[in-house]
């Protein structure tokens, strides 16, 4: 039974990877725009780490 304080994410909550769905995901990424500088630097570190 679902808990009142929030439901866990199930397998059925998955969505297919397609252009339309990726646009939705990137829609959320707009919240990271104010923090783009640390994000880009983080990606650079990620690249060099690999």
């Amino acid at each position: 039974m679902a808990k009142q304080r929030g439901l866990p994410i199930e397998e059925s909550d998955k969505r297919k990877m397609n252009k339309k769905n990726f646009e939705k995901l990137f829609g959320i990424f707009k919240f990271a725009i104010p923090y783009k500088v640390p994000f880009i630097i983080g990606m650079v570190f990620c690249f060099f780490r690999a």
């Binding site: 919240f31 990271a32 640390p38 990620c46 780490r49």
Partner: peptide, 27 residues
């Protein structure tokens, strides 16, 4: 060098994710 890169990668990504998730939750 790899461990230094890893530290900054984790710290910077945590900074971005924590702050942007705070903004999403508030919104």
């Amino acid at each position: 060098i790899q461990s230094i890169f890893s530290f900054f990668r984790v710290w910077l990504f945590a900074k971005v994710s924590e702050k942007s998730m705070r903004d999403i939750r508030v919104a």
